[in-house]
Amino acid sequence: MNLKVIVASIIIVGALIFGASTFMESNIEYMDFEMAQTVNKKVQVKGRWVKEKESNFDATTSQFTFYMVDDNNQEVKVVLDGAKPNNFEIATEVVAKGRFKDGYFHANELLTKCPSKYEGDGEAVKKTL
């Protein structure tokens, strides 16, 4: 009986340590561009797309390039692996996941936060009258 309890406890503790360490490793921290420049790991940065600046999709490298400002108004060029995400144009906020590389932010993933499209906004209802 005792042996069983010990074995079980070892397995459980081992699994928890394994889980916790993987969790800490793969946690992608939120930071601003300034901080992101100083760390050499995958991070995520929240901000807005600078619509006025150029943005394009390069078909040869399959990368989408655009400019983004973070919450501290620092503007950075972002190169995303992949095409322009759905809802990009109407997003009020974007979150880029990736790391800094040669002066630009190399993102592997881009999340878009849409304006509460399905929450009522007065403008939308006027259009449908």
């Binding site: 993987t22 490793e25 793969s26 946690n27 992608i28 921290e29 939120y30």
Partner: peptide, 20 residues
């Protein structure tokens, strides 16, 4: 969890799920 521990919200990379 990260909000409670660090006060900042962050998600895990999908690789977490595969590794575990």
């Amino acid at each position: 969890i990260t909000n409670i521990i660090k006060g900042k919200i962050s998600a895990v990379d999908p690789s977490f799920y595969i590794t575990t």
